[in-house]
């Protein structure tokens, strides 16, 4: 049989222990442990979120780098194109210029040639007139027909080359 005295004391002691521990003991420990557990859980959650953010950031970074590289490529390509264009244009211009110069030179040469030809022609005409005059002067005194001939010749030469005669 349980002893009354021991029963009494056990009841007193255990209830006291229980009261003290329930007031100042276990709630402190469990709440603190809970608090820490929550904190750890939150930290883990936060770490996960940060991780996700980092992943997103690095993705974004990669995307930006890719974009920049593309841009660079585009710019380089455009620059190359522009350069090619400029070169081509310059070449074309140069070619045109050259062609123009050649054409001008040609026309000038033509004109020079023309004027030279006409000078030569008039010179030749003068010479031939002079020669003819000398020949005619020699024969004019002998024949009356000579006069006719001269007239005929003058007319002919006038007909042939009026400006040269005018000169």
């Amino acid at each position: 049989m349980p002893d009354t005295g021991l029963l009494f004391w056990m009841l007193v002691i255990f209830v006291t222990v229980l009261a003290v521990l329930a007031k100042w003991g276990f709630p402190v420990i469990t709440s603190m442990v809970e608090k820490r557990k929550n904190y750890i859980a939150e930290s883990l959650e936060l770490a996960k979120k940060v991780d996700e953010k980092m992943a997103a950031l690095s993705k974004e970074q990669a995307r930006i780098i890719g974009e920049a590289r593309e841009e660079q490529n585009k710019i380089l390509k455009e620059a190359a194109e522009a350069r090619n264009n400029i070169i081509r244009q310059a070449q074309e211009q140069a070619r045109d210029e050259a062609a123009k110069l050649v054409a001008e030179a040609r026309t000038q040469i033509e004109a020079e040639k023309e004027s030279a030809m006409s000078q030569i022609r008039s010179q030749v005409a003068m010479l031939s007139v002079n020669v003819a005059e000398k020949i005619i002067r020699k024969t004019l005194s002998e024949d009356k027909e000579r006069k006719e001939l001269v007239e005929k010749m003058v007319e002919e030469s006038l007909k042939l080359d009026p400006p040269a005669v005018k000169n």
Binding site: V17, V20, L21, W24, G25, F26, V28, I29, M32, V33, K35, R36, Y39
Partner: peptide, 18 residues
Amino acid sequence: VLLLVLGCARWYRKHDVL
């Protein structure tokens, strides 16, 4: 028992659990 548990509780009161 009291010493152990209250000692533990005291530690928690005096320290930053986080």
